[in-house]
């Protein structure tokens, strides 16, 4: 199976590393970043691309654009890993749409297009008889989509609760464990590369809210948008508050919840018993699925990172190859 890889940042390079170092039997026929691109139907030497990107900041040649690769190169599956725009979904939305129209499978880690336009993209994929998968958009390495779709098939999903943002979880963990102020913990998270220069998306709860939108729309078929999520961040949480929670053997975590039966769609800091399964440390994510037959099932794992996110992407790619691509 031939792959076009669009976006060559942290995640894109993680995917390239996996293809180089592991025997996955995947061929890459096109790669692009924001300024350059490379096309070779016979298969691109990914080791060389990684090196060129490291040395020059470009993965290919100027003058070959991402859209050109998507619309004209030979490939079976598009891996879309460009930056997220939660409001417009662009540039990913345009890229994914173009690939689906050409009858190409799509795998993405980009929350933007899935949160903004899931139903339209799903319809387009169905019309063209191709797959659209997005495991990496929610909880990074945790195979939550695969679990909901296959592992828990036949269950009624009553609700999903979780720690969906590793940055917030890191900050709250450090505030609780070391009595750091919010500002000190945020600074530390930045220094360690866990928080962006502009941490708004994370600390205001928006990133977690986008993931709830994706789950609400894909698991329950709802048509929610970011504005439907009752969202409160962690930026006003004090270390005193964490100490007060500690007094009753609890702590504070940013919890996302969807319970369609009770019309709950909410991200908010919560007092939570320390013994609760969702209380995880550092940058970990945790997600609990409440079902009618299986009861409560909880997944814990890394929510971000280069190889962790690549893991989710590769798993989607192999799933499509093994289940949906006609072998020749």
């Amino acid at each position: 199976m031939r792959i076009a890889l669009i976006g060559f940042g942290s995640v894109g390079r993680g995917i390239a590393e996996a293809i180089v170092h592991k025997n996955l039997d995947l061929t890459v026929s096109g790669v692009a970043d924001s300024k350059s691109g490379i096309i070779d139907p016979a298969g691109i030497d990914m080791r060389a691309v990684l090196e060129r990107k490291r040395e020059t900041g470009m993965c290919g040649e100027e003058g070959i654009s991402a859209m050109e690769i998507i619309t004209s190169a030979d490939y079976d599956l598009l891996i879309e890993v460009t930056p997220t725009d939660a409001r417009t979904g662009e540039p990913a939305l345009g890229y994914i749409t173009a690939a689906l129209r050409r009858g190409k499978h799509v795998v993405t880690s980009n929350k933007g297009p899935i949160a903004c336009a899931y139903h339209a993209l799903r319809t387009l994929a169905d019309e063209h008889g191709v797959q659209l998968r997005y495991e990496a958009t929610v909880c990074g390495a945790i195979p939550i989509m695969q679990a909901l779709e296959n592992g828990l098939a036949g269950n009624d999903i009553r609700g999903i609760y979780g720690v969906f943002n590793g940055t917030c979880n890191y900050i709250l963990t450090r505030m609780a464990d070391e009595r750091l102020t919010y500002q000190q913990a945020l600074l530390e998270a930045r220094e360690l590369g866990y928080a962006e220069a502009d941490p708004t998306y994370d600390v205001k709860g928006i990133d977690a809210a986008i993931k709830l939108v994706i789950l609400a729309n894909t698991v329950w078929g709802l048509s929610t948008t970011l504005d439907d999520v009752d969202t409160t961040g962690i930026d006003a949480v004090t270390s005193d508050a964490l100490e007060l929670a500690e007094g009753q053997d609890c702590t504070i975590r940013l919890i996302g919840e969807i319970v369609p039966g009770k019309e709950i769609l909410r991200v908010s800091p919560r007092i939570i018993p320390k013994s609760h399964t969702l209380v995880v440390s550092g940058t970990l994510n945790a997600v609990m699925v409440d079902t009618d037959m299986a009861g409560k099932v909880t997944f814990i794992g890394k929510g971000a990172g280069s190889s962790e996110t690549a893991s989710a992407i590769i798993s989607d790619v192999l799933f499509i190859r093994d289940h949906h691509v006609k072998r020749t």
Partner: peptide
């Protein structure tokens, strides 16, 4: 800011 308790599921 009101922080509510999450029931133990």
């Amino acid at each position: 800011l009101m922080i509510e308790t999450m029931e133990d599921h």
